[in-house]
Design a binder for these strands. Structure first.
Length: 174
DNA sequence: CTAACTAAACCTA
DNA sequence: TAGGTTTAGTTAG
């Protein structure tokens, strides 16, 4: 597992990846230490559920390219973060849901209920909320684009201000 | 058992 | 028609 902190125009973004893809990507923080601390906490949280991650050689991961995309994103540009993701730390259900969320493109929104319906669980909206709630790969898996059915924000583990801010970058104000 | 990023079906007045 | 209650579905601690 590799890790890094990228300095973007919105702050320090901590991230981690394995040979399978991204493991974590945090929201920007205003100082480097916070980004490192948060990344450490996230990785520890995932470690519990992870299997032997042993000698994982680094995939040819293009940090510079990601840095460029992040800056464009925070600049308000339409960006497509189509990067491979390491889903090993998630349950099958969570993986199914997160993969669906990953398909929601910039500026689009879906409701928890719609995702649930797509996954074949018409009454699973709340379960979807639970699944996106454990997403540790922000932006790349855009769980901020999942909102409540009546057009309201719904929830967000990192604070609704963040959810509102991210959507606003994509031209949506709620 | 509960809390956590929900929503629809059912009452009830 | 509006407003309150119940229930469904997942998962970690």
């Amino acid at each position: 597992m590799e890790r890094a902190v990228i300095e973007t125009l919105a702050g320090f973004v901590g991230l981690s990846w394995s040979r399978f893809g991204l493991v974590a990507l945090n929201l920007p923080t205003s100082c480097l230490i916070d980004a490192e601390t948060e990344l450490q906490a996230v990785l520890e949280g995932l470690k519990v559920r992870s299997q032997s991650d042993c000698q994982a050689p680094l995939a040819d991961f293009d940090l510079a390219k990601l840095e460029k995309k992040l800056n464009e994103y925070f600049h308000g540009k339409r960006v497509d973060f189509s990067l491979p993701v390491d889903f090993r730390h998630y349950t099958d259900f969570q993986k199914t849901i997160l993969k669906r969320v990953q398909e929601v493109s910039w500026g689009q929104m879906v409701s928890y209920g719609q995702i649930a319906a797509q996954a074949g669980i018409p009454r699973g909206s709340r379960a979807v909320g639970g699944a996106v709630g454990v997403n540790r790969i922000l932006l790349v898996i855009p769980c901020h684009r999942v909102i409540a059915h009546n057009g309201t924000l719904g929830g967000f583990g990192y604070g609704l201000e963040w959810k509102r801010k991210l959507l606003k970058l994509e031209g949506i104000s709620l």
